[in-house]
């Protein structure tokens, strides 16, 4: 067994068994970490694989959360309905946003996705039904097939972990498929892909919308975890937070954003216990990673050897 496989097994074992030995505080902390890991993973699909730097993923995260709140106001509280609906709502929002934003590239794309997310933020702040800028409490967590099992924090932890694992496997298939191959080509040289005969726009838009679905699911999970929705879900700092996780962990890898979410949120947790000014420590740390670990933290991990040998 290589060190790489070993470390993965330890990693998975740790997260599989965590609620069995951790107290409620830590179980809930790690639930939030897993949910943010899902958000970071969805963002990396767009940024790392699609080459589109979106600074507006909070819009889709927030859409998922508000969809959960809206359905609970109407008495629909079953996760089997609400969570797919939250993902679907995020896709519906992402379709026009992506269709318009993808007419631009580079810095303009960053700015326009940010602008759309800020529009969504102020729209949510104006929604009196959902408490305006104060937000709104949810009565209870979603049920699963009518059973209130998610009330237990350990069960909810496993629901979040299961969602992340499913999303991870989905992204893994996606990035290795023909679609993923084409997406990688577009990221590297869009003009060349066009001269090879690919219409690049539909591929990018599809990637953007799929990513939004995962962000929406993360939003629904977060609304369930905190039992609270507010415009802060849609704030641009939320988008920035997710981007930092992706870059810290390693752009264009699947394990990277998950790792980035874990490290960033744990650091925030630990440092804020020591000092109120924890950002003074965290900031330089992030700069060091960006300067000296180009592939992010995941890049520091021992990589699988690429074989250059002649294949028979």
């Amino acid at each position: 067994m290589t060190f790489r496989t070993f470390s993965y097994l330890v990693f998975i074992g740790f997260f599989m068994t965590l609620p069995l030995w951790a107290d409620v505080f830590h179980t809930r902390l790690f639930t939030r970490i897993l949910i943010f890991a899902l958000l970071a993973l969805s963002l990396d699909l767009v940024v790392g694989y699609g080459g589109m730097v979106s600074f507006g993923h909070a819009a889709f995260f927030g859409t998922g959360a508000y969809m959960t709140g809206m359905m609970s106001l109407h008495g629909i509280t079953d996760a089997l309905v609400v969570w797919p609906a939250a993902a679907g709502a995020a896709m519906l929002i992402a379709l026009p946003i992506g269709a318009l934003s993808l007419r631009t590239r580079g810095a303009y794309f960053i700015m326009i996705t940010l602008a759309f997310a800020q529009m969504a933020y102020y729209f949510a702040s104006g929604l009196e039904t959902f408490g305006g800028s104060d937000g709104m409490r949810l009565l209870a967590r979603n049920t699963i097939a009518g059973k209130e099992i998610l009330v237990r924090h350990d069960f909810f932890y496993y629901a979040a972990a299961g969602s992340l694992a499913a999303a991870f496997l989905l992204c893994r298939r996606l990035t290795r498929s023909r679609f993923g191959l084409i997406l990688g080509g577009i990221r590297q040289n869009e003009k060349r892909m066009q001269s090879l005969g690919y219409a690049t726009y539909p591929y990018q838009l599809t990637c953007f919308v799929i990513s939004a679905a995962l962000a929406g699911l993360a939003g629904a999970l977060m609304a369930n975890e905190t039992l609270y929705i507010s415009p802060s879900y849609l704030h641009w700092t939320q988008s920035g937070h997710a981007l930092v996780m992706v870059i810290l962990g390693g752009l264009g890898t699947l394990a990277g954003p998950v790792l980035g979410a874990i490290v960033l949120l744990l650091l925030e947790e630990i440092l804020s216990a020591f000092t109120q000014h924890w950002m003074i420590v965290l900031g330089p740390l992030l700069i060091l990673v960006v300067l000296y670990a180009r592939g992010g933290l995941h890049g520091l991990w021992p990589q699988k050897k690429v074989s250059h040998a002649t294949t028979p």
Partner: peptide, 10 residues
Amino acid sequence: HGFRFWKNVH
């Protein structure tokens, strides 16, 4: 077309 999301192209 390249909208094949599931099958591993490799």
